[in-house]
Amino acid sequence: MSRILSTYGGILVAAMGQTLLLALYGLLFACVIGMVVGIMSVLHNRACRAIAAIFVNLIRGVPMIVLAYFIFFGVPYFWNTILQIGGLTLTALQAGTICLALNCGAYMAEIIRAGIESVDVGQMEAARSLGLPYWRSMQRVVLPQAIKTMIPSIINQFIITLKDTSILSVIGFPELVNTAKNVVAATFLSFQTWAVVGLMYLIVILLLQRAAKVLERRLKYAK
């Protein structure tokens, strides 16, 4: 254990940094996708709702590892070799970010849709009856109430996404699991290495949960 820590500790911590970076990029875009698709799925417009439903079902129905291979290997192959347009290369970070953003975005969209739908329709009707336009009513009345109910699920989704970055080791992104594999290959100390890696994930996620609790409490009591 001490050999792993002293020799490879720095490398593993750096790899955790890469994991966090990837998760951060992924979550950032996932929030945007989730917001847009989530709101699309509560609109009156049928086309918007259909597009949102197709997107969510498609992503939820495909394992993320398949999505990762498809984006990293499949899409450039399709573009460069089949379409013969050429010039498309994705770095592992880019492909990983897209993959996480799509995957987490679909789940976020569902959380946001459910959050908006949990607000009584009377709230929107009352705002509209006063003459407020739809978007204004959404912004001032519905969304502030929806967000409160969404927070726990969103934080849960963040944690799942952070753990899902490990799947992206398969496309060669130097995140924690991928790096740990290399460490095991060089040292054969699989028990020690994976124990340390597990512990590192645990610590980061516990810290995240702690921060989330504080945030949740603040929102609850904020009037």
Binding site: Q123, R128, S129, L130, G131
Partner: peptide, 18 residues
């Protein structure tokens, strides 16, 4: 929206903004 500004409505379930 312009018309609604001049037509007030009161609902069975109040619908105050929570």
């Amino acid at each position: 929206n312009k018309v609604r500004e001049r037509v007030g409505m009161v609902f069975q379930h109040f619908n105050l903004f929570n």
